[in-house]
Amino acid sequence: MESNATKTKRKRKFTYLSSIISIAMVLFMLGLFGIIYKLSGNLTSLIKENVRISAYLIDNAETELINQTLEKIKLMEEIKEVRFISKEQAALEQSREMGEDIVGFLGYNPLPSTIEISLKANFVGSKNLENVKQKLSAISIISEVNLQQLAFEKVDKNLNSLAFILIGIAILFVLISIVLINNTVRLNIFARRFLIKSMQLVGATHWFIIKPFAKRGILNGLYGGLIAVTLLVGLLSVLPNWVSQIEILYDRQSFAILFIVLILAGIIISFLSSWFSAKRFLKIKIEDLY
């Protein structure tokens, strides 16, 4: 037959395990949100950088001048990528799109040579766009700059709203995580309130009583954090099987930082919850323990 001692030890191990799993689940949810936030941030940048500016060149611009202009534009801090499309190439692409030879049909090529420019994501905003437009318009061989300003502004506005919503949800998630981990830890310590009182009555100092709970809090937070990170790494490695090309949004350095933050958050929240809960039970009177 199983002795009371074994039962108590098993019960305690189970309590630790359930506490670690609870912390791990909460941190996993928090981490998952962190990953979604990072992925959506990367996706936002990708969308912003894919919105292009077209700079039309004057007819008969000299090749050397075009090359100099391309180099000049590349050196601008706002610019991510530059592509030159010649008059002939533009006609070819247009004909391919329309399914008809437009030069043959019109008898001349109406399309100008174009420089297609994509901006760095953090420069996609109406103020910067105006600035870029001015700089491009000042170049002698550029006859017209097509900003697609409305598209830029729409993208910028929508993505900014999305970012605000995500930040709001992130704050909510962090608060929920703190409350859930705190409650789990408090329940565990509540189950050992009589032990705390017994220790107090035999003359143990507060530090002696709190120390094992704080130590356990650190360990539970660490184990919970490690489990959460393992699950997240597993999820990230199988995600490309379900969502094609998602790995282009992966940012390994940011994920590594996120994982370290998660483990530290687990340790800190669990430690502080243990510390304050144990301290709280030290102040409770005997009759309030029942």
Binding site: N4, F194, L201, V202, G203, H206
Partner: peptide
Amino acid sequence: IPFLRRKLGIVFQDFQLLTDR
């Protein structure tokens, strides 16, 4: 207070022993 309690012995009807030790 802990140092006072070390000079006292407290015996209760239900002052719990640690059952796993």
